[in-house]
Design a protein around this nucleic acid. Structure first.
Lengths: 205, 205
DNA sequence: TCATATTTTGAACGTTGGTTCAGATTATAG
DNA sequence: CTATAATCTGAACCAACGTTCAAAATATGA
């Protein structure tokens, strides 16, 4: 038998487990979910899970980190497709909101915040999430700087600007996840863009 | 013996436990903390904790909810002391940042997000946190509305404006907690105020 | 000081759940 | 078809920890 096919099938089974794990973890957090549950949901025996993952912590952090990579890859690619800064900002907001809408399960976990615990694996995960965050902020800073050079943006500290923008996006996502809501999350794009660029003050009075 | 004194002493002991619990929970989350640890840190035997709290969940959620009430009470009072809207906005930011600086332990828990679990108590806590959040947003909305009537602010959806403002505050707090940092958190006040009111766009070009 | 009530204590209990592993099942190849 | 390897299975093991409660310590009031 071709080792190639064997590997492909292995990865499929692994992915199936991760997919179920994501759903379950997102609904109930890390600790209250049991391996038995995940095994059950994905159609394997408990012991089989250990063929794919060393332990529960490893399963959990693998699931999160792989999805996170996907998210940043997706967003960054879309943003980079734009030439001008204004377009990049708008696309960033849009791509982010879209990703959240398509990955609500994952985002619940992500927003729930980090993880618990002190264990080696878990604090490694925590650190990677933090690193990922700052990396993303740096990515945003990068095109905001161009915007300042352009004259499009005011000369403010770029790190603060970037984290402000990110926080507006995140809070819209957060509220949308809290209230199983009426309109699409993406529809918040214009508001975020407007308030980020222009603020709330009425300059015409 | 006066029942009064007895009660006072009971409350002191109870408060001592809550204080230690806050420190420990904030560092390591809910599940990885044991009752034995809390007992130890607060100088009681394990069994004694159960004189003050029904169980671990109850201890945890009591600690959070009491502190949360304190926070909102403190902030709202300061904000209400202002007459004009601009002052209220500035005071809101300031009071919030100040509270975070003085209660880092608590805020770590709060930002970590909600809690885990499905249990009755825990999902009740979760709901109360969410309710508290929306109540706070409504409180902010209230004076933003006045600002719109005044002509100080643009006519934007007040709920979105309020949650944008709150998210800017929270993200500053979050970053400050992540990076055990140089300058005080309160020093971010001016930036938040500026970006909230004026946005990042350079209108002079 | 003594009898009684109150409070504290922490070892022991029982449950929960992650992990293991010997045996069953399935796939492979000759 | 058969022997061997690879994979899967889930009952059993074991450690962790929340909770209990009988006994000890302490406080109270006469």
């Amino acid at each position: 038998m071709r080792a190639e096919r064997k590997e492909r099938e292995f990865n499929l089974r692994r992915a199936a487990i991760l997919e179920q794990a994501e759903k379950i973890f997102s609904a109930r957090g890390y600790y209250s979910v049991t391996m038995a549950e995940i095994a059950n949901a994905s159609g394997f025996a408990i012991g089989s899970l250990y063929q794919f993952f060393d332990n529960k912590e490893n399963l959990y952090s693998t699931m999160i980190l792989e999805k996170l990579d996907l998210m940043f890859a997706e967003i960054n690619q879309e943003v980079n497709a734009n030439k001008d800064v204004a377009g990049k900002i708008e696309t960033l907001i849009n791509a982010h909101l879209q990703f959240v809408e398509k990955n609500t399960d994952f985002f619940r976990i992500f927003l729930r915040g980090q993880s618990e615990a002190l264990s080696e694996t878990m604090s490694a995960l925590r650190q990677k999430l933090i690193d990922g965050y700052f990396e993303h902020i740096a990515f945003i800073e990068n095109f905001l700087k161009t915007g300042i050079k352009n004259g499009l943006l005011r000369k403010l500290p770029t790190h603060d600007m970037a984290s402000a923008l990110f926080s507006l996006i995140r809070s819209a996502a957060n509220e949308w996840l809290l209230e199983p809501t009426k309109e699409s999350l993406v529809s918040k794009k214009d508001f975020i863009l407007d308030i980020f660029l222009n603020g709330v003050k009425n300059h015409e009075q």
